[in-house]
């Protein structure tokens, strides 16, 4: 058993929030640079170059790389041997978020009531997901999610007969409908299986995987390759100005599902692929 006071989460989440909004990681920068070489559209090439330059400037100067610093999604994977002490955990997580947005000079983009739409003023609350894992550690991952790409996500429960072809059509159609609005080049997260909400959750899980990595199951890895190729044949290109590079990668996560259903969800990630993690 390991006792942790929830207040320990505050400085950690504060730091991760700022890091995620300011620093894009080498995995993404490398993928952007590589895609710049493959892009045939002169305008598209120029845009990718500007994005890389922007990422460097943001990191050097400690400024948000994109002004839409999003609503923050926080994942806490809590070891089952951990016992919490102190103030309610969710309150402490949100305190970290509040401090991160304040001290990082990040934009407040959260409204408290989806109908009344009054800004909360400190970018809280975050969307918190917790799960229990073996051991006595706590893994923390934060993901600021801007609306441009998040708004274009979709979920649908297909029938088993629609199968792989149905899933492919749904994914490609989602990317096509998003066009330049989602700030391509994209990372396309796909969740297949489970229930309606499980597939949506998996689609976001899929975005955690580094660009260039494939699913461990061969048939799913192949589907990822096929989808990436199909998406890049759409011609949408960087920021939708036309070009070869619409997506940097496609990641699929799967889960068992009911004999009668085939849920599929697509969560789009814009080129500002922001996340930061730590272990407590």
């Amino acid at each position: 058993m390991r006792v942790i006071n929830t207040v320990e989460l505050v400085p950690l989440i504060r730091k991760l929030t700022m890091k995620a909004c300011i620093e894009l990681d080498d995995n993404l920068i490398g993928a952007l640079e590589e895609s710049e070489k493959r892009e045939e559209s002169p305008l598209g090439k120029e845009i990718i170059g500007t994005l890389v330059e922007n990422a460097r400037a943001a990191k050097d100067e400690g400024l948000a790389c994109c002004q839409d610093t999003g609503i923050l999604v926080v994942y806490l994977s809590i070891g089952q041997e951990v016992v919490w002490q102190g103030n309610p955990l969710e309150e402490m997580v949100n305190e970290g978020v509040r401090q991160g947005y304040r001290d990082g000079y990040l934009r407040n983009s959260v409204v408290l009531d989806p109908f009344l739409r009054e800004n909360s003023g400190d970018n809280t609350p975050c969307v918190l997901h917790t799960d229990i894992i073996p051991g006595d550690r706590v893994k923390i991952l934060v993901m600021p999610k801007g609306a441009g790409s998040e708004n274009m996500g979709r979920v649908q429960v297909l029938t088993p007969a629609q199968g792989k072809a149905g899933v492919k059509d749904f994914v490609v159609e989602t990317v096509e409908k998003a066009g330049g609005k989602a700030c391509p080049p994209l990372i396309v997260g796909v969740g297949v299986g489970g229930t309606m909400e499980k597939s949506a959750f998996l689609a976001k899980e899929a975005l955690k995987r580094p660009i260039g990595e494939r699913h461990r199951e061969k048939h799913i890895a192949e589907l990822e390759d096929e989808l990436l190729e199909e998406i890049n044949r759409l011609g949408i290109g960087p920021l939708g100005v036309g070009g070869r590079i619409t997506a940097l990668d496609v990641h699929i996560e799967v889960y068992p599902c009911h004999i009668a259903s085939l849920p599929v969800a697509v969560n789009l990630q814009c080129h500002a692929n922001r996340h930061a993690e730590a272990v407590l």
């Binding site: 400037a57 943001a58 400024l63």
Partner: peptide
């Protein structure tokens, strides 16, 4: 005009 979506640091300058 299309702005460069996500190039916010450079734009801010």
């Amino acid at each position: 005009f299309l702005g460069i979506g996500g190039a916010a640091t450079l734009y801010g300058k």
